[in-house]
Every structure is written in structure tokens, then in C-alpha cells.
Design a protein around this nucleic acid. Sequence first.
DNA 1: TCTAACCTGATC
DNA 2: GATCAGGTTAGA
Length: 271
Amino acid sequence: MPELPEIETLVRELRQKISGFVFSKVNVSNETVLETSATELKKIIPGRCVKNVSRRGKYLSFDFENDYRLWFHLGMTGQLLLETGSSSDVPHTHLIFEFSGREEKVVFRDIRRFGCVFLADSKKEIPARIKRLGPEPMQVEPQQFAGLLKKRTGKIKSLLLNQTIVSGLGNIYTDESLYRAKVDPRKRPDRIPVQKLMHLHQAACDVLAEAISAGGSSIDDYRHSDGSYGKFQDSHRVYGREGRPCRDCGRKIRRTVISGRSSFFCQQCQK
DNA sequence: TCTAACCTGATC
DNA sequence: GATCAGGTTAGA
């Protein structure tokens, strides 16, 4: 599910809603999503105040004092919800965080359990998973973006999905970016002019910004922190539109498989 | 650089 | 029953 716009949406909501909240306890019903032991979590979390909620790539973090952070990755089906009722009955609820003097609880739910949660003292050490991330697409210069891709081999779509090159793009937003930049997802970057790669960077920034404004894409499992749906799925131009007409030329959108992932594109428009 | 594997559920 | 799904990664 969740790519950069979906995580950014959650970050903005949760920052607004729980900044200043102090954790009182954490309930762990499934340890398999934890990369930090339940024992340590229960020892460290209570009493910590949420100073900020932030994002790096597809990772979200609750920021405490002294650079202590609680990191979340939502995998394919992860959800971070702010709930008031009894959330523990809902299947696949793995963690529930409670706050001092507050009714709301932060609930981590993940059907397929590809997500993960871990604590880190960022002052001592940046977690390896975070450290290896490439730059944020919206914070990198177009020329640098083009340069990062140019020096690699492989299909452009695979490279955009590689989080160590650029972080935050997933299957939806790579396809949507490549469509807008009119680049064939199967093409190798050494056969794409630098100008076009820079155009691709602009396309990615545009798509990401629009998706954030729409609150992300809710196709299957992604939900806002209040359980509501994102809206950007209605604006997808190629993703999930196999056989339907291209918005620009009317030809049928094609589906192929790249890096084991479905890839949607218009063979007429994307060269 | 690419594939298979990790998991569960929905759909064909 | 087989196939597919917003991700990541260990191993070939």
C-alpha cells in the first residue's frame, strides 16, 4: 500500500493530532512485526512525549526528546490508526499505544505483516534501514536525480523502485511518473536523454504533490489515521487501468511485469 | 541485477 | 486451485 504520499498524509495528520501526547503503555499482541523486543519497547515507551511526527522515505517516526525515535514501516497492508473504541478485537491488530489522560490510542494493524516497528536512539546511531535510503525525490536537484539514474544499468522502473537510489516511490507513483514524463518503464537510463530524466524528476514531484493533496491512494488497505479513504486513486492515469483508454491518445493501457511487479503504461505515449 | 521468499486475503 | 496485491531483502 503505502508509498511516500500515503505516509506523508499520515505524518501530517498524526503530527496535528498527537503532538504533545505522552505514552502511558503499549500492548503487544504480535511480536513478529517488532524489530525491537517487546521488553525494550515496554521499558522505553511509557512516559515519552511525542515531540513531532516525521517521515523518511516510506518510514514514519514518532520523535521523542534526545533524538529517540519510534519508527514504523507499513509494508503492503499496514495501517496506523487513531482510535477510541476497543481496537484489540479487530483481526491483525499487533500493537496498541495508549496515552496519559487521553482516550485516543494509536493502533498498528497489518494483515500481511510485511511492516515493521523499531526504536532507535538516533543520536547514537541512524538505523541501517534508514541510513541506506536514497534522497527524497522532492529534495533532490533534477540534475542530481538524473545523475543517480544515469550511472546505473537496469530498467528505469526498477531503478525508481530501488529505495537506495531515491526513496519514497512505489509501484503506483513510478508508473504515474513515467507516464507523465512519457518514458517507457522498460527503458534503460543510459538510453534516455538527461533532459528527459530531469523531466521525469519534475513529473515525479508533481505526482507526489498532487497525491499528497488528495490524501494518498486508497486501493485496498490504505486508510487515513481516522479510517477514511484517500482520493488520489481516482486520478491515476495508468496504474490499474489495463485495457482502458489512455487519457492522451486513446490507445489501450498495457500491463507488463518488471521486477516482478505489474507495470502499467501507454506504448504509444511512452517511448 | 534479478528472483524468490516473506504473509494473508480476494478474486478468478 | 492458481494468481494477484501500494514492499523489502537475502541469495543466486
